[in-house]
């Protein structure tokens, strides 16, 4: 009886562990199945490089270049915010903060991560965008810059906590050896600790990017939604996630528009997939470099 129970539990956990795989495969299959029909109507090149996104006019046009560029712009903008703040916080927490400060700062950063995205969106819409609009005398405050700032703040905890982990993986012996040969604290930090944790920090940045590019609710609320190729950070934009969220509800199932939205989702998925593979690859190399086993 006991043995049977044990086996049963083992199977249960095996099934649970593999369920993620099943979900992933299911999602990929559906994405491909629903996305591919559009490429019978529009060539891949026209889809990716087309500059007009008019899915519901007659005749429709499905060019998603403005949407891709919008996503990349706001994500790069977010990096400008979240990398210095995130990595800086990680360095401070790891190198300078006393136990008391750590005890306050770490949970605070984690709470920042748990604020729902709609709250960020609301904040961006009601406070940040009017503020930027007045400060820079913009025609309108809903633009790439506003979106970048909000996304940057949202991605900061991801970057900070993973970078902090990376720093804490650097073996003590590295630091001791550095001090032993007479290096001061700054030299140890810049010449030993950061290079050793470098790939871990890169992983943190890449995962922060994934977080920013996949964010939907916030960009829907603050990006402005104009499907044009952005020429400045003050232009309103329509990132891929916002287009999908805004249009999926009314696109008739099985229509070209519906398939095109799935194709956008597929492309977005491929982009984040590449990000995550890169992060995994870099962090693996990093562990090897430090002589840590998997």
């Amino acid at each position: 009886m006991n043995k049977r129970k044990e086996r049963l539990i083992k199977y249960l956990f095996t099934a649970l562990a593999f369920s993620s795989l099943v979900f992933l495969i299911g999602i990929v299959l559906v994405l491909f199945k629903e996305a591919l029909p559009i490429f019978g109507k529009v060539s891949l090149k026209a889809f990716l490089l087309g500059e007009s996104w008019y899915p519901t006019s007659e005749p429709p046009e499905f060019g998603i270049l403005p949407l891709i560029l919008a996503s990349l712009w706001v994500t790069l903008g977010a990096l400008v915010i979240c990398v210095p703040i995130g990595v800086g916080s990680a360095l401070y927490l790891h190198e300078l903060a006393g136990p008391r400060q750590r005890a306050i700062l770490k949970p605070v950063i984690e709470i920042l991560a748990s604020v729902p995205s709609i709250v960020y969106g609301f904040f961006g819409m009601v406070i940040l965008s009017p503020f930027l609009q007045d400060t820079f005398e913009l025609p309108i405050g809903l633009c790439a810059l506003t979106t970048s700032i909000i996304l940057g703040v949202m991605a900061t905890p991801t970057v900070a906590s993973i970078a902090e982990d990376a720093l804490s993986y650097v073996p003590r012996s590295f630091r001791e050896a550095s001090f032993a040969v007479g290096a001061d604290r700054w030299q140890t930090l810049t010449k030993v600790i950061i290079p050793a944790a470098g790939s871990g920090i890169s992983t943190a940045i890449i995962l922060g990017m994934s977080r920013a590019i996949g964010e939907t609710m916030t960009v829907l609320m603050v990006a402005g939604g104009a499907a044009v190729i952005p020429h400045s950070v003050f232009d309103p934009v329509r990132p891929m996630t916002a287009a999908i969220a805004a249009e999926m509800g009314e696109a008739p199932v099985g229509s070209d528009h519906y398939n095109a939205l799935f194709a956008i989702a597929l492309i977005l998925f491929l982009i984040t997939f590449v990000f995550n593979i890169a992060a995994e690859f870099i962090s693996r190399r990093f562990r090897l470099k430090l002589g840590l086993s998997r």
């Binding site: 007009s52 996104w53 006019s57 403005p66 809903l142 402005g224 044009v228």
Partner: peptide
């Protein structure tokens, strides 16, 4: 039924 200019702000 002419197309709206692409740089129009779209709201839900």
């Amino acid at each position: 039924r002419k197309r709206v200019r692409p740089d129009a702000i779209m709201q839900a």
